[in-house]
Simulated assay, not measured.
Amino acid sequence: MQLALGVVTEVHVPDAECEGARDLARALADARDDAVRAKQRLSKFLLRHGLVYDERNAAGQRRNRWTGDFWAWVGRIDLGDAAAMATLDHYCERVREADAAKAALEAKVKSLAQQPRWKPTCDALKCLKGIDAVTAASIACEADGFARFATASGFAAWVGLVPSEHSSGESRFRGGITKAGNKHLRKLLVEAAWHYKGASRSPKDLAKGQVVDAATRRHANAGVRRLVDRRRSMDDAGKQSSVANVAVARELACWCWAVGRMAEGA
């Protein structure tokens, strides 16, 4: 009775398959965090010993870390103490193990995106810049059906990407985002939004095996143009970069809702 009157809100309960997909995607997020921590520990250990990787290529550009050249450089290090060398070996091994675990989970999440339940939505979401197969699979299983959200703003609110509000009488004050709801999904969208800083307005090419109908792709391409223009206008206005990125993330959430519903036939 209360549900029919709108007094209470129905709670969505995902099924076992969806819960398993969410667990896998969140395990990947944990593995990425573990890899970052392992690399930080190794970097700080080397720094304590006065060692900084500063190799350069023929053009004078600094080489990236965590490449074959970096590991070859690490392999030539001699700290002159057995305990210190054992510590170095330990940190190096932890980095390699963390990277291997992350790569294995990424492969499993990519495979998840090809399953019949998730593929149509994932293929549609991948038309938006900043969203690859892994991110698309994570968004799709966290949402578990965009059709259950009546509006784009409702989905953005569920993710916690809408402004907070403090009201007193007739006065209304808006603050930062609420950060309520799905923290994992909010982080994914905020990270994806960074791709629109300096991005072109051109659409993404379809990946091998990606199947998207023409209408959904046109709508996603319109979303890319809108998000790129939005980011440029905020940068030109002198907005703080992090503030501009969260604003783009909020709109990106709305576009995900839109193309997701189209992929679901809603």
Rank of each mutant, 00 (worst) to 15 (best):
E170A: 14
S241I: 03
C18L: 05
D33C: 01
A258I: 02
R37P: 00
A31K: 07
E251Q: 15
C92A: 07
N182A: 07
R96S: 07
W66K: 06
C18S: 10
E10K: 03
L5S: 15
H90F: 11
W66F: 09
G75V: 06
R76F: 04
N245A: 07
A58Y: 12
E10W: 08
A58M: 05
L125R: 09
C141P: 13
F146D: 12
A156N: 06
K108F: 00
Y196E: 09
A214Y: 00
A258Y: 03
R226M: 13
Q40C: 08
L5R: 15
G209N: 12
K197D: 09
A21G: 09
R201W: 06
N182W: 03
P120T: 09
R41H: 14
A266K: 13
R65Y: 03
K126V: 10
R230V: 00
R217Q: 15
R76G: 07
C256M: 15
F70G: 04
R232L: 09
S202N: 13
A107H: 13
C256V: 07
Y91F: 15
A4N: 05
L161H: 11
K129I: 01
V248A: 13
D213S: 09
F45Q: 03
E55T: 05
Q114A: 15
F155G: 08
G175Q: 05
K119S: 11
W73A: 04
